[in-house]
Every structure is written in C-alpha cells, then in structure tokens.
C-alpha cells in the first residue's frame, strides 16, 4: 500500500462492510426467491372437476349388483378419477355373508383434526361402498392394502395394509382403526341407478389421495366411457 495513504477509519470501514453484506444479501434473496418459486411446478389438473363414470366389467358391460360378491375375498378395484388412482369396490356383509347396510358417519382425520361425512352404502341393500385403495400412510396399494372379510363375530371385516400395519374400518367410512396411518382412506361417492341396476363413481370426499397435490392432478384421466373394474384373485 502506498505510504502516503491516510490511516483507515475502522468504524467507517465496518459500516461499509455491513452495507455490503446487506446489498449482497438483497441480491441473494432476490435470486433465490425467483429460482425457488420457479422450481415449484404449477399444479395442472388433468380434469377440471370430478367426472361421473359408469363402472364397467372388463368385457365392457356395466357392473350389476349380481356381479359383486358379498365379502369377496378377491380384490376388486377400478381407477378413478385418474389412471394411477385405484379404488376398492366392496359389497360388505356380516360374518354369515348377508348384506349389511352402511350408513353415512362422521369420520375423523387424526392428522388434521378435521371431520367429514362419509358416503353411505349404495345398491339395493345399501351395502356397496368404495374408497381410495392407496394407503394413506406411505402409499402401498393392493394386494398389500386389502379387505379382510369378517370371519366371525369376533372379527368384523377390516381393510389392512401389510406394509406397516395400518388398519381401516370399511363399515365406518374407512376410518382409522390402528396406525401408523393418521388419515382415513378417502371415500368414493357412488351413485346407484335402480332402474338399470348400474353403479357410477361421482366424486371423492375426505383427505386427498396419497401422493397427489389434488385428487384431479398428477396423472392422466381414465377413459371417458367409464371406469373398468379389475379383479385381483387370491
């Protein structure tokens, strides 16, 4: 440094250092804010609203009540509203395989403390119900997540996930019976056409389907002609 330089004012220099850090900080904040906000993908709904889809057999004919077995040990699912969102289709009965009428109940969401009204069973006996078949704990799907029919009065039927042991009660709106899940399975609202004996999926209620930002985003819509059921034999 040149000899003739005047002594440095430390206080002034520290003031400038603080201002410098502030300016650079402002630049970093401005940059990071835009980059982070840019990196968040915009939610794009594959569907603008829940479609109403007729449930179809693999051969293309509508599902009738006789196609559904009470306490079916096989796993019957269909995708709704998007292709990667499977749902159970259950016809619930008691231990001696007689249809049980399912009423709408208030379901708790332990994770948020919220409540919602579960859809009531439909069909001639009010026994057909449906829910998302993606476990709300960590996203396991059938056959790990499946319905175990009632075998005796001591064991009423439950939906159980073999991955981590979450259990849901399909007779009470798929509410949580045991953890680790903190959320019930989202209920699927079915409508029953008694004149034609057909079933349609109309919407979902309750928590958002596991792994999705909204029920209607994060995948491709299912065919508009109807939702085809598949049976996973056991």
């Amino acid at each position: 440094m040149p000899k003739d330089e005047k002594p440095i004012d430390e206080q002034r220099r520290n003031f400038l250092k603080v201002v410098g850090v502030m300016i650079i900080g402002a630049g970093i904040v401005g940059t990071l804010r835009s980059v982070v906000q840019y990196a968040i993908p915009p939610v794009s709904n594959a569907e603008s609203s829940f479609p109403t889809l007729l449930l179809l057999l693999p051969n293309g004919n509508p599902v009738h009540t006789t196609d559904l077995v009470v306490n079916n040990p096989s796993i019957v699912t269909f995708d709704y509203p998007l292709q990667n969102e499977p749902n159970f289709l259950l016809r619930l009965g008691d231990a001696s395989n007689n249809d049980v009428k399912i009423d709408s109940t208030t379901v708790d969401i332990p994770a948020t403390g919220g409540k919602y009204q579960s859809p009531a069973g439909v069909g001639p006996y009010g026994s057909v119900v449906s829910s998302s078949a993606i476990c709300q704990h960590l996203g396991c799907i059938p056959p790990e997540l499946r319905f175990h029919p009632p075998s005796s009065t001591n064991f009423p039927g439950k939906v159980h996930c073999d991955c981590h042991g979450s259990t849901y009660d399909p007779y009470k709106g798929f509410s949580v019976v045991t953890g680790p899940t903190k959320s019930p399975l989202p209920g699927l609202v079915l409508s029953y056409d008694s004149t034609k004996d057909t079933y349609s999926a109309t919407m979902l209620v309750g928590p958002t389907i596991y792994g999705h930002t909204t029920d209607l985003s994060g995948g491709n819509p299912v065919s508009s002609s109807g939702a085809t059921i598949t049976t996973l034999g056991v």
Partner: peptide, 11 residues
C-alpha cells in the same frame, strides 16, 4: 458513508 448508505438504501 453517504454513497455506501445510499447504495444500501437503494438495494
């Protein structure tokens, strides 16, 4: 000090 402060304020 004046210019430094001004730059900081502007930022």
């Amino acid at each position: 000090v004046l210019f430094g402060g001004l730059y900081g304020f502007l930022a």
